[in-house]
Nucleic acid binder design. Structure first.
Lengths: 186, 186
DNA sequence: GTGTTCATTGAACAACCGTAGAACGAATCC
DNA sequence: GGATTCGTTCTACGGTTGTTCAATGAACAC
């Protein structure tokens, strides 16, 4: 029982607490959105006092920023439609909490909207370049809208038909859409 | 100038105020979502006192219920894909505030989620029946997800590529998608 | 005209929010 | 050792929120 020394060095303590707070923040923001999550809420989920959250993250806004940082999404290469399907599969398989944080708050919180807009912009640019059509921008935007709609309905609204379906079926049905929009059939 | 008598009968006054409050509520909920909308906010937008809003609507929750009532959407008849495109065109043309109220709040407010779920359920049922495929339910859900994603990106997030595009272009690009999902090409 | 109804206001309450800062105690440094 | 840093908690403040309720004055019934 007391074999291992507790190893509660201050640096460790700090890192652990900060990580626990950040994890709790991500979970809470993803479940409740920006407005309904409170500092006290996050603190109690992390098992610490609310003051500590403020002390480490400065403000609720800053806490959200840190929790909402999206991991750099490397876009697969290859034919656009195929790359998109791979990208979609990743999002359907992982149910990435990080992106749910942003999605859940994006309709009501300005900064979430900004974060999302920025991420979407670079994504759209890269995608547009790969689409051989005059209206590539619009096509890419539609593809992005489709992906967002599917993720929202599946993971946030949990509409049964979509939430229960295997990712493979979803992808198979969406394949012709992506091919058509990515301009590979015309 | 003073030709017409002011006609401020009590019944009229009441109806007018209630209508003005409801309109202000719809606009505010659609712009800010449920949480960030305050009773005082709505009241001041309607040019009345906050107490009056409570007196007429009882609670913020009730006010939201009344503001979020979606108009019965009569589904056009005909080939599914064609009917869907007509339905989509209506939503793209009108920019219906009523549905934005629900959409804006649907990710953070439980009742909005319920209202949306109910409306979506009947919509999905009717749409499933019109799709001749074993996985009609999933197909209908994907179509619904696409429409939601497009409306959200266009009117709520106002992503430029989609917000600026003519409705006709959007519909033209989406037509193959709907045809493929509605099972009319296979 | 007189008494009643009722649309509307203003002030207040309790609860909760984000946030700040003092206080405690254990790890750290010399 | 003692002094000090620092992780952590406690308490409190000012502001906002949904909500209540008494007060006011104009429309109404008779």
């Amino acid at each position: 029982m007391s074999d291992e020394q507790p190893r509660r060095t201050r640096a460790e303590q700090r890192r652990e607490s900060e990580a626990r707070i950040l994890a709790a923040a991500r979970a809470t923001f993803a479940e409740l959105g920006y407005e309904r999550t409170t500092i006290r809420n996050v603190a109690s989920a992390a098992g610490v006092n609310a003051g500590l959250v403020m002390h480490y993250f400065g403000s609720k806004e800053e806490l959200f920023s840190r929790a909402a940082k999206l991991p750099e999404e490397e876009l697969p290469v290859g034919h656009p439609a195929e790359a998109l399907l791979t990208s979609l599969r990743r999002r359907l398989d992982d149910e990435p909490v990080a992106s749910l944080v942003v999605l859940r708050s994006v309709l009501t919180h300005a900064e979430a909207s900004g974060e999302f807009r920025a991420a979407a912009a670079t994504w759209l640019d890269r995608m547009s370049e790969a689409i051989p059509a005059a209206d590539a921008g619009l096509r890419a935007a539609l593809i992005s809208a489709i992906i967002n709609g599917v993720v929202i309905d599946r993971y946030l609204l949990k509409l049964s038909s979509l939430a229960d379906a295997p990712a493979d079926d979803v992808i198979a049905l969406l394949r012709p859409c992506f091919e058509s929009l990515a301009g590979e059939t015309g």
